[in-house]
């Protein structure tokens, strides 16, 4: 996600379009990115640290963006 202090013209354009489409009551829209990574094997702390490193150095530009990393179990794994 863009940091709160960085202007998000795309989010603003979305917000301006909403009332025109009959969606009222939205005070603010911020647009971000989501990456879904499927890892080989279980996601332990070491793997998670590597993913955070990946996010910090490559997937996000920390000059203007914040990121957070979440672990989700895929359907295949939960069966």
């Amino acid at each position: 996600m863009l940091k709160p202090e960085i202007l998000d013209p795309q989010g603003q354009a979305v917000q301006r379009a909403l009332p025109r489409l009959g969606f009222d009551g939205v005070r603010d829209v911020r647009q971000g990115k989501r990456f879904e990574l499927e890892m080989d094997g279980p996601v332990d702390d070491t793997v998670l640290d590597r993913v955070r490193e990946m996010a910090r150095t490559f997937l996000a530009n920390t000059v203007i963006e914040d990121f957070d990393v979440r672990v989700e179990v895929t359907e295949e794994e939960s069966r």
Binding site: L2, I6, L7, P9, Q10, A13, N61, V63, I64
Partner: peptide
């Protein structure tokens, strides 16, 4: 150069899109 951190800051979408 900004992505490499050789220069500070970043370039973002033009404000008028």
């Amino acid at each position: 150069l900004c992505e490499s951190h050789l220069l500070p800051g970043a370039l973002t979408r033009n404000d008028h899109l």
